[in-house]
């Protein structure tokens, strides 16, 4: 190949790239993108499920002593949850009676869209340490930016941060792009905003010193933001950092769910386009 011909070829790359961007800008590539998306989505889903299976369970590498310790811890947590559950059932029944008497307040039922996770941590997302998943539902299904994504048990997974026609990006709660107004489970007021740190942990910064926060406290969404329902469980406090000479205190939240093993999520839709 002659030198001029080679230069022409390299020039061709620039021309093709510019043309593709231009055609996309004027909307000529919609059909092609939809076609590729339709072909790739099942492949991505299959690859994702195989990868999840290969990854195996998180307990596989623990030794016997660690497993026994884990079992004891789980049993003690289970006992506590049973006690809590009994109390909650009583409260629920009492609540139902009160609702029936009041008669004017109807319990909200969330509309939701169930979506498959087809990919995670898009190749360009690692650079700014954003932890995200791509789901196979988008604006066509009523999903908009800012909606909450939960798992099958209603635990918060993350927040919709980008939407296209047939797909959407959910930034997980340990991503720095996912910020949620949260409160303690038994309190109505917002104590702070969660922020993912390095894609690993969830922190609540700038909590007033007057708030009493203990390790193990359950953190729920406060409903401060539009389209985010109140009371959805985010996790529990695993570390509370309070220094007497500081204005604010800080807490680290441990999510209840394993964010690595998401296969499906439910995106909670706004009710009649009104905020909760």
């Amino acid at each position: 190949m002659g030198m001029n011909k080679k230069k022409n070829r390299l020039g061709l790359i620039i021309v093709v790239v510019v043309l593709l961007i231009f055609f996309n800008w004027i909307g000529l590539l919609g059909w092609l993108k939809q076609g590729i998306s339709a072909v790739l989505q099942p492949m991505l889903k299959s690859a994702h499920s195989v990868s999840s299976e290969i990854k195996g369970d998180e307990f596989a590498n623990l030794n016997e002593a660690e497993l026994i310790a884990l079992l004891k811890q789980t049993q003690s947590e289970h006992n506590k949850l049973v006690a809590d559950n009994a109390q909650l059932r009583y409260l629920q029944e009492e609540n139902n009676v009160l609702r029936a008497y009041a008669g004017f307040f109807e319990r909200s039922k969330y509309h939701q869209v169930i979506a498959d996770v087809i990919s995670r941590n898009t190749i360009d997302s690692n650079y700014l340490q954003n932890s995200n998943v791509i789901i196979n539902r988008g604006s066509e299904d009523g999903i908009i930016i800012g909606l909450l994504a939960v798992d099958q048990s209603g635990m918060v997974v993350g927040k919709v941060t980008q939407v296209e026609k047939g797909i959407a990006e959910v930034s997980l709660i340990n991503s720095r792009r996912c910020n949620l107004g949260v409160s303690l489970q038994d309190q109505a007021r917002t104590i702070g905003i969660t922020e993912g740190e390095t894609g690993l942990t969830v922190a609540i910064n700038f909590i007033p010193q007057t708030e009493v926060i203990r390790e193990g406290d359950v953190i729920v969404t406060s409903g401060l933001e539009n389209n985010i329902p109140r009371g959805m469980v985010v996790g529990k406090i695993s570390q509370a950092e309070k220094e007497n000479n500081e204005i604010w205190q800080r807490a680290v939240v441990e999510p209840y769910i394993n964010l690595e093993d998401l296969m499906m999520v439910a995106v909670i839709l706004p009710q009649n386009n009104l905020s909760f």
């Binding site: 790239v17 593709l20 961007i21 993108k33």
Partner: peptide
């Protein structure tokens, strides 16, 4: 080089389809 151009463009285009950044970044 011709086949390399085809590969690079195909990969970049597909990545751009599934990217939420502005279209053309991978291209």
């Amino acid at each position: 080089l011709d086949w390399a151009i085809v590969w690079f463009l195909l990969i970049a285009f597909c990545l751009d389809v599934f990217s939420f950044n502005a279209f053309g970044i991978h291209l």
